[in-house]
Simulated scan of single mutants.
Amino acid sequence: MRVVFGDGTLAQLPEEAERLGMGRILVLSTPEQKDQAADIAARLGTLAVGLFDRATMHTPVDITEQALAVVQSLNVDGVVSVGGGSTTGLGKAIALRTDLPQIAVPTTYAGSEMTPILGETKNGEKITLRTPKVLPETTIYDVSLTLSLPPAISATSGMNAIAHAVEALYAEERNPIISLMAEEAIKALAKALPIIVADPHDRDARHQALYGAWLCGIALGSVGMALHHKLCHVLGGSFNLPHAPTHTVVLPHAVAYNAAGAPEAMRRIASALGAENAAQGLYDLSRRLGAPLSLAEIGMREADIEQAVTQAAARPYPNPRPLETAALRRLLQNAFAGKPPQEEQA
């Protein structure tokens, strides 16, 4: 992948599109970012032949099918995804089915643009696959595009990014290079996010956050993830909880669950946060940012906890600690109530 990073780099979009041989581009966005996507389509001039503004979180297959119909009707030969993980996911889903080239233009800290991973939702279940086919050919990071990201969304988007780096530090396939990047990413975001919440137009902080998110995305795409991401996929795919806030709420509790099984990762996380304890440090950072602390406040029903536990434990996957139903239930009950994280014994 080619990465263009800086401030004002969106000006290079037409050049990047032509370099990839794109002549009939479909610009993708969520409904909320339609105006921003339309402005970016205007920058492309005659290269842009359409705008599809129905990207949706968790990448529902039916939305992808609608977008594919537009791709076919307009004879599209490339897509530009403008936004966060929802739009990037749609671009990936299109690429998976058509092999069309993609340019990702992130406006959040989701990190999906740096990964060969696609999560799609169908019939109330989120399925994840990993293939190089879904990697964008180019990602353009432009700090100026993040200045309008509201503080509340910046906070949860940034915590979502941190989750990628945290799990990379105790991933089964972890390696020294990715661990260095992950620790640096946590440090950059933990420093930048409180400044952004206080002053959303602080360009230096926005630069640091976008840099950290880029590193988090690389970490997510390079090694496998564990319990935290599994839980968030279950909660998002089955109960339609919002993606980034779900990651924000669950992360301290998943880290507490795994603390005894990954002491070196915990030390590095705590160090990057400037905290004594990794799980509590993440919880305190969320609270400082004014981010949600409980699953209840983002729309989960207490009655759904048991189903979530069953689904999370259903398929084995690598994790520093074995998955135990009773412990998972305690984790989700604490996260539902917004209690401080409680470490489990190995």
Rank of each mutant, 00 (worst) to 15 (best):
V71A: 06
L20E: 05
L90E: 14
K34F: 13
Q36K: 12
M22N: 02
V76M: 00
L100K: 00
G45I: 04
Q66D: 05
P14Q: 05
Q36H: 08
A55T: 15
L13N: 04
L90D: 02
E65Q: 09
L90C: 12
K34E: 14
T30A: 03
G91Y: 05
A17N: 07
E15T: 04
V70G: 01
D35Q: 15
T98K: 14
E32M: 13
D39G: 02
G45L: 02
T88Q: 11
D7L: 05
D39Q: 12
Q66H: 04
D62E: 15
D77R: 03
E15K: 00
A48L: 00
L96G: 07
L28K: 06
I63G: 06
T88V: 04
A67L: 05
T56K: 15
L90G: 06
T9A: 09
R19T: 08
G8Y: 10
T87S: 15
A42M: 12
V76P: 13
A104E: 04
A38I: 10
G45E: 03
L20V: 13
L74R: 14
L26A: 04
L90R: 05
P14W: 08
E65W: 05
V71T: 10
D39F: 04
E18Q: 13
T87F: 10
T98R: 12
I40A: 00
N75Q: 13
I94S: 03
V79L: 02
V49H: 03
T88D: 07
L13C: 11
L28A: 09
K34G: 08
A11H: 10
G50V: 13
V71C: 09
T107E: 09
A95I: 08
E18W: 01
I40E: 06
A17M: 05
D35F: 15
L90M: 08
T107P: 14
T87D: 12
T107W: 07
E32R: 11
L100S: 01
T59V: 15
I63P: 01
G78D: 03
A41L: 07
K92R: 14
T9H: 02
V49C: 00
M22G: 01
A55E: 13
S81N: 00
R97A: 10
V61N: 07
L20A: 13
P101F: 04
A48V: 02
T107V: 14
R97Q: 15
D77W: 00
A93I: 07
G23R: 03
M22Q: 02
P106D: 09
I25L: 07
R24Q: 12
V70F: 01
E65T: 09
T56R: 11
G83Q: 11
G23F: 03
D7W: 14
A37T: 12
E16N: 03
T30Y: 08
V27P: 09
Q72S: 14
V79H: 01
A95S: 15
A11W: 00
S29T: 08
I103W: 11
P106R: 08
A38T: 12
G21N: 12
E16Y: 02
T9N: 05
I25V: 15
